[in-house]
Nucleic acid binder design. Structure first.
Lengths: 225, 225
DNA sequence: ATTATTTATTTGGTATACCAAATTATCTTG
DNA sequence: CAAGATAATTTGGTATACCAAATAAATAAT
């Protein structure tokens, strides 16, 4: 039983969705594993109705697959699907870069820069998850600076869907952290110069790299089997 | 009572969502109007459970706003929100254009071209809704040609959210149909040449125009009040 | 007559009950 | 013992019941 029913005006289903989403992202629920409704509801100390509500939300986000007369399942995207997802993500971040150049405030820019510095600081010793999370947060901060709510939300959803695959690939150290930092430096520079093209291109480059890295990891996995 | 409960393996909630989505897009439900659960459920001849499921789906798509302890409401985006939505849409279609240049088949290209010709043919006498629908279908066909499912789905959702505003603006004839046709011609040409830059740019231009046209319509509306 | 207060009612949120399809286990039959 | 048929059980889908918060209505006090 988790501490879900805290005092709040948010729907239970939303909170359950948050819990499940975290479990999925953090790998506590493996891709492909079942999410039986009664069992899960009981484990969370809630009824099936809000649990189902949460599952519907996650289905809409693409994190859960619900087939008729089958237990809901944690999404388990193929390499191709992940590639497609990151392609969209790169378009979204490209737009975010352009918009950010126009509307980012100096405060927000400072924050992005300090996040970049923070990432540099921990690059030597940080755990994979910590470094990866900080990396993601850096990108989220840029997207957030656009103040474009639909963009922010859609980007966050795509982030969720590719989170695990990107984390796996970052954990394998396929990509050197130094490269990540250099790309981030380009992005920051673009923002400082308010150069749409540079910012957008740097952000997209970052994600194109992610695609090749993930493809490598998947290829290795298949060789092992 | 609508003919919802036909024999099918699809969840009731999905079908209800389809019905409501159509009603919203076609203007049978006005933006801002309430969707009381019991009343609507009864009107559709279903119980509240699947109706709520449908509302959750539509909330996820941004077509319905559900606030705590208030009746669900048909989304009523402001000009700014619509502008933001179309910005994202333009990024998505830009990506679609690039991908389509790579992966579109000759059959699909033929279909796009014939849709373009069809649009030219009806431009003189078609009703606003028919012309607009055909215009939208043309764009959807291009996005579909990418075979990128997440892109297709996300694009469709953004399409839904801006549908009404774009339809209103097209109905006011703010934009001459001849301009639309010329832009479409550029898009088709880009696809035929497999020119990513031209295709992408033409698609984005199309939507940037949409933004200014919609802004005009909204400005006129406010003047009238 | 107006405002404040309280009661009634409506509404969304959650839990439970029921159903049908699908799966699994059991039993029967070759 | 193996294979097919049938019964039992599990699971998701839907309907109903109940609750709490919010709103509307009615009443009382100024």
């Amino acid at each position: 039983m988790l501490g879900i029913q805290t005092i709040s005006r948010q729907r239970l289903g939303d909170k359950i969705a948050d819990v499940l989403r975290n479990q999925i992202l953090l790998g506590e629920m493996n891709p492909g594993s079942n999410i039986p409704e009664r069992e899960t509801a009981e484990a969370l100390g809630v009824s099936r109705t809000p649990l189902r509500e949460a599952l519907l939300i996650l289905e809409g986000e693409g994190l859960v697959i619900m087939a008729p007369a089958k237990s809901p399942v944690v999404a388990n995207p193929t390499v191709n699907e992940i590639t497609q997802l990151i392609l969209v993500q790169s378009a979204l971040e490209g737009l975010a870069g352009e918009c950010a150049c126009e509307v980012i405030t100096t405060d927000e820019l400072d924050r992005v820069q300090s996040m970049h510095q923070g990432l540099i600081a921990i690059a030597d010793q940080a755990e994979a998850l910590d470094f990866f999370s900080a990396d993601m947060a850096f990108h989220e901060a840029i997207v957030a600076a656009t103040k474009n709510l639909p963009l922010i939300k859609t980007h966050a959803q795509y982030n969720s869907r590719v989170w695990r695959a990107r984390f796996m690939s970052s954990r394998r150290r396929v990509k050197k952290r130094s490269i990540t930092l250099q790309e981030h430096a380009n992005i920051v520079e673009g923002l400082v110069l308010r150069d749409k093209d540079q910012t957008s291109a740097a952000l997209q480059q970052h994600l194109r790299d992610a695609i090749t890295n993930i493809a490598t990891v998947f290829a290795n996995q298949e060789n092992q089997e």
